[in-house]
Write a protein that binds this DNA or RNA. Structure first.
Length: 894
RNA sequence: GCGGGUGUGGCGGAACGGUAGACGCGGCGGACUCAAAAUCCGCUUCUGGUAACAGAGUGCCGGUUCGAAACCGGCCACCCGCACCA
């Protein structure tokens, strides 16, 4: 996925925060971590007492690759249930970051677990490779975007491989591969043929810094999502994908996505923004500039008799008509446009308007006309860009009316108010009530009034009831080079002519000049000049490229048949879609996920995909954060420049200057608090990094990366390694049944935890199990069995160590844990031999009682009552009630 | 303003309505060592007590229940998303 703040390529300034060799003291919370690092890097690497992850991890990665352990067929034979697990694919910015490590570790746990549970698992990886950072790199240092991108991919691929992910690399592609974007061009032509593409002039969000158009979804607080520059309004011809045609389906189907987080569904529902109301036309008293009426949308047709004025947006045609005959109107429009849409601007902006002098008639009120104002709070993008002002029952309209001295006629009487005395002060009445001063609507309630007003409008031909959507069509044109070329040709004679499919892929030219501002494709001397495929006359290629969100709107489907000569292969998508578990950041809750849903529905409608929804399950992970350190002079310090104080604060190394510590800050270059995964993996190994990132907290929450936490995870890795290698030395002749029971309880607990994404709990249960093994007096064979199960249960999280443990426990066994089935809990061993019963008096714990399973109730109650503490609490009072919850608790009520 | 979510030790967090604080981090004490590291053992919610034990305790107020972190009603705080949306 394209990050909002892409990390510029090449060396992070503090990539050396965690040096691979000794000497890198990270002194957060005393000296443990630096001391540990010292011993681990300087100690004998082949010491039998320590697990040599640096040698073992590549070895097992090679073994998986040699055995093609993670390859999935395009069309499985159906003997196993399929499971498609996918993490949002990365933007190749140069290096992986901790967010990637978390994301891909989560997905890998699911993939490995499901594989062990007998599913045919597809777990692919690719690259969301088009986008602006590559072009910026080209401008800044003269590398070609393709060279920059593919070099980054090569680097990040090897970083991902070092994590030991169970990926099917044979499915890998980058969206900037012509084999991919050529298929995307073919899909676009299908969309065009299906009537889902429109070219039209429209007011667009223009990012003056990036020099390109932005979709509404890419404008955050009035600023460009990438550049952060205030967005301007411009009118341009653009390509649009007709997502609004699917608005009702996209909204309704949210209810079917029961394995999506509630908050994502809510965000999408809000974004789609359905509202019921009416569209109606107000005739102009005198036609102006060819306009004879103004259309408005309202959700409150019941309040039509409360009209006081009509207001249009600055971009509305009627505003232009006013400007044409009135210089001051033009000046007001210009003022509105420069006002900006930033949050600050909106908050400060008072409601301003300009009376155009035009007047409109009212559909119900004869012989009266109302003034038409241009108002800065009317949005051209919503509804019709015009509204009727009803100040008594809309706060914003009321503020406007008070400012300009417009009338405020009340028409909705709140419950309990007297019509003779009810007036509106500074607060509009926006609730329901009884209509009055409203002609034929008088006496109706608000809901009945709406229905009656719509009926009357329809009868008069003045309007109709409608459902209005906040969702806009998706403008996909971008004036950039490093994107998928839009495969159409503009011909003076024939108009818009699609590039014939047999000429796809329409490739980007390689010789481009980034020295001039603007779109290099447009500047290219020859690329855009082409013969019209229809009439043969000279014509012009479209030089816009697609928004990169188009690339990510169907990649999950392409993964099913990544080498197909057609965009999709129906047998493959039928076999694999929908994605069973999709995992990624919450930042894509609207944009990417909504676009992908739209694409899937569109392709479903064209018969190219058999399912209407792309992602059956969605999991949104939290961010990875890290403490940040700021000096009084405003400098940010990297963790390795900081020393902890005994009081829990931090000072700058060397100078001793006290620093402000912020404990949970999103990792960012500017705050210098990033941690480089490559360095962590080099120093502790992939398993340690994976284990820690899973153990810290529930995966949907933000987590804090801490050095001491990683060190703790590494201690556990080494500990269970010793558990396996020291089997013979740990003599034991004792009973093995308790250990077997602990084993099977752990199988059940870890299984339940993994099923519910409670990976931190799974980790805790495995810690407990390791404690139990260590404390067990059981003999060698029973311990071997237990440690072997520990390895298999830990395998989704620590795959390399699991293989290593298995090979140590079972020399000569050539099976891989990655290909073994999941351990089954034996119900006979889940049942305990004895149980601990809590004994309460009046709900307060007074004793615990260890009793054999199956003890008669009377016996148990007698034993409980006999407890000394219980007797003291009862204090001689008669027991009124004895409550017994078998296996749990006894409660005496006195 | 609308919508969604979260509140539990020093910290991250566990806990089918049934022993609150599993597990980890940090801390304290100890063993081993010439010394350190690594490793191991013990303690670690708060208050009182040497202890046994007692009292309090899951944001606040109330309710349901033999029993509430969990369920219900009413608040508070924080986080996130949307928002001059007609």
């Amino acid at each position: 996925m394209n990050p909002r703040n892409p990390v510029p390529p090449a060396g992070f300034p503090h990539a050396k925060a965690f040096p691979l060799r000794a000497g890198g003291n990270i002194r957060i919370g005393h000296q443990t971590s630096s001391i540990l690092a010292h011993s681990m890097t300087d100690g004998p690497p082949d010491s039998p007492a320590r697990y040599d992850f640096a040698a073992a991890e590549p070895r097992w990665q090679q073994a998986w690759q040699d055995r093609a352990s993670f390859a999935a067929p395009d069309v499985p034979d159906g003997t196993k249930p399929k499971y498609y697990v996918l993490e949002m694919f990365p933007y190749p910015s140069g290096k992986i970051h901790m967010g990637h490590v978390r994301n891909y570790t989560l997905g890998d746990v699911v993939a490995r677990y499901k594989r062990a549970r007998g599913h045919e698992v597809m777990h692919p990886m690719g690259w969301d490779a088009f986008g602006l950072p590559a072009e910026n790199a080209a401008r800044e240092r003269g590398t070609h975007p393709a060279a920059w991108t593919y070099a980054n991919i090569a680097n990040m691929r090897s970083e991902l491989k070092s994590m030991g992910l169970s990926l099917d690399w044979s499915r890998e592609f980058a969206t900037c591969d012509p084999e991919y974007y050529g298929q995307q061009q073919a899909l676009f032509l299908d969309f065009l043929a299906a009537g889902l593409v429109e070219r039209r002039k429209s007011w667009v969000n223009w990012d003056p810094v990036d020099g390109t158009v932005l979709a509404n979804e890419q404008v955050i607080d009035g600023k460009g999502w990438r550049s952060g520059a205030p967005v301007e309004k411009r009118e341009l011809s653009q390509w649009f994908l007709a997502i609004t045609k699917f608005a009702p389906q996209l909204l309704e189907a949210l209810d079917t996505l029961d394995r999506w987080p509630e908050r994502v569904r809510t965000m999408q529902a809000n974004w789609i923004g359905r509202s019921e109301g009416a569209r109606l036309r107000f005739p102009l008293a005198e036609p102006a500039a060819g306009l004879s009426e103004v259309e408005v949308f309202t959700t409150r047709p019941d309040t039509l008799y409360g009209m006081s004025f009509l207001a249009v947006a600055a971009e509305h045609p009627l505003a232009a008509a006013a400007a044409a005959r009135d210089r001051k109107a033009g000046a007001f429009i210009a003022e509105c446009r420069s006002q900006g849409t930033s949050e600050a601007a909106i908050e400060q902006a008072e409601k301003k308007g300009y009376d155009t002098g035009f007047r409109v008639a009212h559909p119900f009120i004869e012989g009266v006309t109302f003034p038409v104002w241009i108002a800065n709070f009317v949005l051209m993008e919503y509804g019709t860009g015009a509204l009727f002002g009803c100040p008594a029952h809309d706060q914003r309209d009321l503020d406007f009316a008070r400012k300009y001295g417009l009338p405020v006629p009340p028409v909705v009487l709140p419950p309990g108010e007297d019509p003779a005395s009810f007036t509106i002060g500074k607060t509009a009445w926006t609730g329901d009530g009884t209509l009055f001063n409203s002609g034929f609507l008088d006496g109706l309630g608000s809901e009945a009034g709406k229905r009656a007003a719509i009926e009357a409008l329809e009868a008069k031909g003045a309007g109709q009831g409608v459902v209005n959507w906040r969702l806009r069509d998706w403008g996909v044109s971008r004036q950039r080079y490093w994107g998928c070329p839009i495969p159409v040709i503009h011909c003076e004679a024939c108009g818009i002519v699609p590039v014939p499919k047999d000429q796809l892929p329409l490739k980007l030219p390689e010789d481009v000049d980034f020295s001039k501002p603007g779109n290099p494709l447009d500047h290219h001397p020859s690329w855009k000049h082409v013969g019209c495929p229809s009439c043969g006359k000279p014509a012009r290629r479209e030089t816009d490229t697609f928004d990169t969100f188009v690339d990510s709107s169907w990649y999950f489907a392409r993964f099913c048949s990544p080498h197909s000569p057609t965009p999709l292969k129906r047998e493959a998508t039928d076999a694999w879609l929908p994605v069973d578990q999709y995992i990624g950041g919450i930042e894509h809750a609207i944009l990417h996920l909504l676009y992908s849903r739209f694409f899937t529905r569109a392709l479903h409608g064209m018969g190219q995909i058999g399912t209407p929804e792309p992602f059956a399950g969605l999991f949104t992970q939290g961010m990875v954060q890290h403490a940040s350190y700021k000096a009084p002079d405003g400098r940010w310090l990297a963790p390795d420049e900081v020393e902890a104080t005994p009081e829990g604060g931090a000072v700058e190394k060397g100078t001793g200057i006290a620093l402000t510590v912020s404990r949970n800050d999103k990792m960012s270059k500017s705050k210098r608090n990033t941690v480089d995964p490559g360095a962590i993996i080099g120093r502790y190994g992939a398993d340690t990094a994976r284990w820690f990132i899973l153990s810290d907290n529930p995966p949907e929450r933000d987590m804090e990366w801490s050095e001491s936490g990683v060190a703790g995870a590494h201690r556990f890795v080494q500990r269970i390694w010793r558990l396996a290698t020291g089997l013979e030395a740990r003599t034991g002749e004792g009973e093995s049944r308790p250990l077997m029971q602990a084993t099977h309880r752990t199988i059940a607990a870890v299984t339940a935890a993994l099923e519910s994404f409670a990976f931190n709990v799974a980790v805790a249960k495995l810690h407990e199990f390791a404690n139990a093994i260590e404390a067990s007096p059981a003999g060698v064979e029973a311990q071997r069995e237990a440690v072997g199960t520990l390895a298999r249960l830990a395998a989704p999280m620590m795959p390399h160590l699991a293989e290593e443990l298995w090979s140590v426990l079972h020399p000569g066994d050539t099976r891989l844990v990655a290909e073994m089935p999941w351990p089954e809990a034996d119900p006979a061993l889940l049942a305990a031999d004895s149980m601990t019963i809590a004994v309460q008096v009046l709900g307060k714990l007074r004793a615990t009682l260890s009793v054999p399973i199956g003890i008669p109730e009377a016996e148990l109650l007698a034993a409980a009552e006999a407890e000394e503490n219980v007797q003291r609490a009862i204090a001689g009072k008669p027991i009124r009630k004895r409550i017994h919850v078998p296996g749990r608790v006894v409660n005496f009520v006195v």
